[in-house]
Simulated scan of single mutants.
Amino acid sequence: MPGVVRWIMRIVIAGASGLIGTDVSAALRHAGHDVVALVRRAPRAASEVRWDPAAGSLDPHVLAAADAVINLSGAGIGDRPWTRRRIDELFTTRLAATRTLTSAMGKLDNPPSMFLSQSASGYYGDAGTARLREDSSSGSGVLSRLCVEWEAAAHEAPSGVRVVTPRTGVVLSRSGGAMGRLLPLLRLGLGGPLGHGTQYWPWITLPDVTAAFTFLLTSGLQGPVNVCAPEEADVNSLMAALAAALHRPGVLRVPAFALRLVMGKLADELLLPSQRMEPGLLSEAGFRWRHPSLSQAAAWVAAKD
């Protein structure tokens, strides 16, 4: 639009190849921002820079001209069974990546003004029906401890850097993530509620996650921010809405004991806990959701365009 000056930012992203990272990177580039992706392999484009978070290796000058850094790096939570070795990997990959970034910032006279470092709704553990705002206490499980340490590592950023740790809920997408496993079953009429189904899942669509992260870059908010839709839903409601949008029954309940038998500790940490999370700060700051209701979200997930 003539006469409108847009602020073009240089943004460095770690974990740009994941579900959220891919969508966020594409949206930021589409908006005209300069996006640099940190990769652990040989760079394939001018927009990529190699780093080695396991060794704490990153040239600080990569961040010198950046306005913001987005940290989405870490091993997938639900990708593999939770052996002791895998749990250690979940911690080490996240903490090493986060500390590599904050250490590099600390070596600069003028570090990036903003650091958005991912966290998760798992911070709250199994909280039953309690309403969870950003000032609610952390839980006691493995995921809770992981999120607490992950957020603490982000706050090792130099003084003056605005740190935001978005506690993201279950991301509804058309492929990839949790939906990548559930949607094929629902489309076949084989999916349904997990466990008793009355546990609350804080949910949000992928486009709204990307919009929320973009909003957080310039909103002025800092610290933990709950990233989920404003409409709460338990698993029974969530699965029913998705099944209805796909025109499938979605009534084949998977009992808790079966989930534990197949997934072990992961079931109790990821699928069965209840988190009645509210996006308090996002709402108060004026963020607008594209899919604020479960019916809108389910319709988007089920659409093919």
Rank of each mutant, 00 (worst) to 15 (best):
I70W: 11
G139I: 05
L272W: 06
S73E: 15
P81A: 10
T165L: 01
M179Q: 05
Y200K: 07
L28I: 03
R131G: 07
R260S: 12
Y123Q: 02
V148E: 15
E284Y: 01
R41G: 00
A66W: 02
D52E: 15
K265W: 01
A66L: 07
P249Y: 09
P202V: 01
R181W: 03
V209M: 15
P273I: 04
G125D: 10
P53N: 13
G122L: 01
S283Y: 13
G286W: 05
G128W: 11
A258R: 01
H30P: 06
V235G: 06
A27Y: 13
S274E: 08
V5P: 08
V142S: 08
M1P: 14
S103W: 09
R6A: 09
S103F: 08
L242Q: 14
A258K: 00
D135W: 14
L28Q: 05
L270G: 07
S175D: 15
P60E: 07
S138I: 07
L190A: 08
V225K: 01
I204V: 10
E89Y: 10
L216N: 08
A241Y: 07
R167S: 00
G286N: 04
A229D: 15
I77H: 03
V4F: 13
A258G: 05
H247M: 08
L270W: 08
A54L: 12
L217A: 10
A256S: 06
N71V: 05
P184V: 11
L252H: 02
D88V: 08
L190E: 05
A241D: 11
L146F: 10
H30Y: 12
L182P: 11
L72R: 12
E134M: 12
A68E: 02
S137A: 07
L282W: 10
L272E: 06
D79K: 13
P255Q: 00
L28H: 04
R162A: 11
M179W: 05
E156A: 13
A303W: 00
R131N: 09
K107F: 08
R288P: 12
S73R: 09
T102Y: 15
D135L: 11
D59G: 09
H33Y: 04
P81H: 06
G197N: 13
V142K: 00
A54D: 15
L58H: 12
T22V: 05
L259C: 08
